[in-house]
Design a protein around this nucleic acid. Structure first.
Lengths: 252, 252
DNA sequence: AAATAAATTGCCAAGTTTTGCCAAATATGC
DNA sequence: GCATATTTGGCAAAACTTGGCAATTTATTT
């Protein structure tokens, strides 16, 4: 039994089960405890699995990134993600905006769908959803390092060449006075263009966005846009007349 | 038993099983250890299988992730990285090709430089080098998932808008007969364009590329191109006349 | 619930086996 | 007879096993 064979077996085991014990592996492969332990050590060093006392577990793809925004109202974002994913079938073409809310949807899509055709300007989303794609297109341009996403004129130029069935679009804020707002002109412009280039744009706003007013007011949404929130809109916002023509869905 | 017979048998074995040991093959074919080892060496060199300690495995045991490729000749790549980084000052503008060798350089740049202006088509490189950048531009286009980099016509269109002082360009193979080669037409084209859009293109080829012949032959390099290797070129390659006008640096 | 005993596991070092690599000798094919 | 292929032998490096001991976990007793 070659080392590489053993490695393949171990990786196969941890991929099928949450964890494997060294003991199990020794009888399975007919080598000593110590050998198995060192194999696991090697593989752990390569980030192929995680070494734990008595054996190994699969790598936890959930890296605890310093993304504080992803933590904000994570439960609400997960509910929105679950709701939106139910509307989208395998093989759909989707344009995905950057942001923590859309990232939550991308994660869920990666887990439950495949053969997708994806367009995005967010590097992290691209990486997350890559395994579930048939085609993956990244809009080029200047990278805003704090968001790890491309923005600007060139990005929009890139974007306007494409058209997708579904759109997943975030917002900076959603308030009574200004309705949809964003923090940068470039971001607002990009999001608006995304909505224009998708058949069914979903505008995602978890409750941490309620009452937030950004510096840039967004143009009125296309009529096809569906607004998805994780709890009922505050009365003042819901009454805003400009919101009336749009479908508002509460994910739960 | 002819060499070609043995090769056929070995390839047949690795295609039916995940791995074969040298020992098994010696009794199967009735030849010595050393002969089998050299057969495997030959076939591995032709990319027909993968040589591992004690035997061989099929070429597609599992997708050769970027992490794995980064580990082949990691020491050589690190030396190349160290050498190249010494040529590049803080604040320089650099165009970086995708690949494991260029990734090694990007890592080192991130550690020791800052205020860089970076252009790249590789998502992983973008993430790695982001903290050290003053400006970071990603070329858009279709993402090749196995490499996590954009390729194709649109990427080249994006690229041709820019111009940088330094270029870090990888290669698919470097051989006597075909000189610089690549595995895809798109990749070769992209790399060529990158060289045309930089003042000082560094072509990086660690020794794992020596003797490798890709399907696509690259156009002659611009005269400004400097070739960086981690050990002296084999004599046959060094003698190739097309290489004469270029500066060849050995990193050590 | 606390203390103790038993079993499991991690880690280390020494000893054994296997393997890679090199060079010389031998065999094979043209 | 010459060039190439293969085997052989030897050495160093790497991998594997074994046994021991301390640390940790689990079971049992008080």
């Amino acid at each position: 039994m070659l080392p590489s064979e053993r490695h393949a077996i171990i990786l196969n085991e941890v991929s099928r089960q949450p964890a494997v014990s060294i003991r199990t592996l020794t009888v399975l492969m007919g080598v000593s405890r110590e050998t198995v332990r060192k194999d696991i050590e090697t593989l752990a060093h390569q980030n192929k699995l995680q070494q734990v006392r008595g054996g190994a577990t699969g790598i936890l793809t959930q890296e605890p990134s310093i993304e504080d925004r992803s933590q904000t109202n994570a439960a609400g974002k997960a509910r929105i993600a679950e709701f939106v994913v139910r509307q989208i079938p395998d093989g759909a073409s989707i344009m995905i905006d950057c942001g923590s809310t859309t990232l939550a949807v991308a994660k869920r899509l990666a887990e439950t769908r495949n053969g997708l055709i994806i367009y995005t300007n967010d590097l992290k989303i691209a990486e997350t959803i890559a395994p579930a794609t048939r085609e993956l297109t990244l809009f080029g341009g200047r990278v805003v390092v704090s968001e790890m996403a491309t923005h600007g004129m060139e990005t929009i130029e890139n974007l306007t060449r494409y058209r997708a069935e579904y759109g997943l679009i975030g917002v900076g804020g959603l308030s009574e006075r200004a309705l949809f707002t964003d923090f940068t002109r470039e971001g607002a412009n990009l999001r608006h263009q995304m909505m224009l280039h998708t058949e069914l744009p979903f505008v995602l706003a978890d409750r941490s966005k309620f009452g937030v007013i950004g510096q840039v007011v967004m143009k009125p949404l296309p009529l096809a846009a569906t607004i998805v929130v994780d709890e009922a809109l505050p009365q003042q916002i819901a009454n805003a007349t400009d919101l009336a023509p749009h479908r508002v869905c509460i994910a739960n």
